[in-house]
Amino acid sequence: MEQVTIWNRLGKGLNYTLLTLLAATCVIPFLYVISVSLTPISEVIRKDGLVLIPSHITWTAYEEIMQGGRLFDAYKVTIFRVVVGTLLNMLFTVTMALPLSRKAMPGRSGFLMFVVFTMLFSGGMIPSYLIVKEVGLLNSEWALIIPGLVNAFYLMIVKSFFEQLPEAIDEAARIDGAGEISILVRIILPLSMPVIATIGLFYAVWHWNSYFDALLYINSPENQPVQLFLRQILLASVAISGDAAEAANSVNPVSVQMASVVVTTLPIVAVYPFIQKHFTKGVLVGSVKG
């Protein structure tokens, strides 16, 4: 008995140490990004980019990217696509996952294969663009939402969580005469909060981070999301014309680049701590009892 507690304590100590170390290495890049964004450019160059703590702080990089209001327009687009997009994603994903989780439903494995198949084979960029154009979504903010309505991978995850719910609860409700929809809303969803929160987060982050669809489908500057804004600042140095005399002038200082990384990353990073409460143990039992 004595032995066990020692091992337990040792294991616990090791566990805490390793986790702390990992977390420390994960903080460094953010420290770096934030520090560089606040440091005068000459100091960044002198130190070969190695500024983890700025010696004195300057906000010029932030002032520069805030000017002109383009950043705020971009936030509007991104927030729209994250909020509306994620809600629609969840609606479609959950309504598909429910039938697909019914193991006895005839045709189920065929439908599942039908979904998984789309994870493997894709026609590429050209036909997707043609469809978006045919459907009339070109240049609309809906082009950032509709073509990615359901992610097959996330759908499979939700379906797999639904499958694991004790069937007894479901059956009990059915005997009580509850309809499928009310079972979904009243029982399955509350029981599935961890996975709903997770997949919601995944969709939201995906929406926040995507840029390629906007690059292809959106032409007007007022419909461009923050990720395009970020890319424009990071990639300004890419000289397409190869004109040596012009290329150097268009490069943004590294402090401006990092400042834009900060303003385009922090908002979505801040979402996570709010979602975490849904990962606590005991959700299942608590809700069943309640």
Binding site: T95, P99, P106, F121, S122, G124, V135, V150
Partner: peptide
């Protein structure tokens, strides 16, 4: 028994057909 289920599945399947399967022609 599963009528509602099939109905729930339909819009999603349609999405997959239009935005995933039709483009596969380009393979």
């Amino acid at each position: 028994r599963y009528g509602v289920m099939y109905a729930l599945l339909l819009p999603g399947l349609l999405y997959f057909v239009i935005f995933k399967y039709v483009p596969m022609v380009y393979i």
